[in-house]
Nucleic acid binder design. Sequence first.
DNA 1: CAGGATCCGGGCCGATACTG
DNA 2: CAGTATCGGCCCGGATCCTG
Lengths: 118, 118
Amino acid sequence: MPYQDGTYGCPVDVAVQMISGKWKPRLIFELQGQTRRFGELHRLLPGVSKHVLTVQLRELEKDGIISRTVIPTIPPQVNYNLTEFGSNLTPILEQMIKLGEVRISKEKEIKDKDRGEN
Amino acid sequence: MPYQDGTYGCPVDVAVQMISGKWKPRLIFELQGQTRRFGELHRLLPGVSKHVLTVQLRELEKDGIISRTVIPTIPPQVNYNLTEFGSNLTPILEQMIKLGEVRISKEKEIKDKDRGEN
DNA sequence: CAGGATCCGGGCCGATACTG
DNA sequence: CAGTATCGGCCCGGATCCTG
């Protein structure tokens, strides 16, 4: 959202706002190239409650990152997809995965070293 | 941090933990290839208090992303740098900037369209 | 100059119960 | 199945004042 003078904030901050939320990056990741149902996402993210999951999904939808499609059957079915705009987030996720892996292997080293010293 | 069974979480979540914090991505961005002093960072991020800035810097330091160097002059001088490990975050920042720019130009379009309709 | 100490408010997140 | 409704805790972030 622009300031009153019509200017916009730093691109970094803008991006931060879009993906900030404890589960959003994970959700975007799980929706890469796949349609997922609500319950599916709920199972894929152990620890998230349905309430919080709903809120995060709604925010992503409002930001134009994902789309939500309701199929009015009984029982109902709701599908989530990445939008075209949302696919712009893919490179970020890829880099986050790389970073996470680097970090994990670094921790493994430390742990292995500690074991060697005891 | 690993679980008790020695396994590690999803790389995405690990990365999220590292960069989550309202000002962290901005701080990492401002430290790309440059040494910066505390006051400098404080001026570069309008809106952040010294207290919060300190906390965020300390967390980044604890995670091994930045280094903190004190030069005991009067008045004191404290320099911050990205560590070698921290430079692993550069690709993420680049992608976040791209994303932010896409988003900003998209909002500009909408605003221009609205102006045309009124 | 670069913080530490203290207080505080909000919203982020989660648990539980209920529903079309 | 895919949510809503309600409640509550807790921590993040901010304001203010103080210091070597």
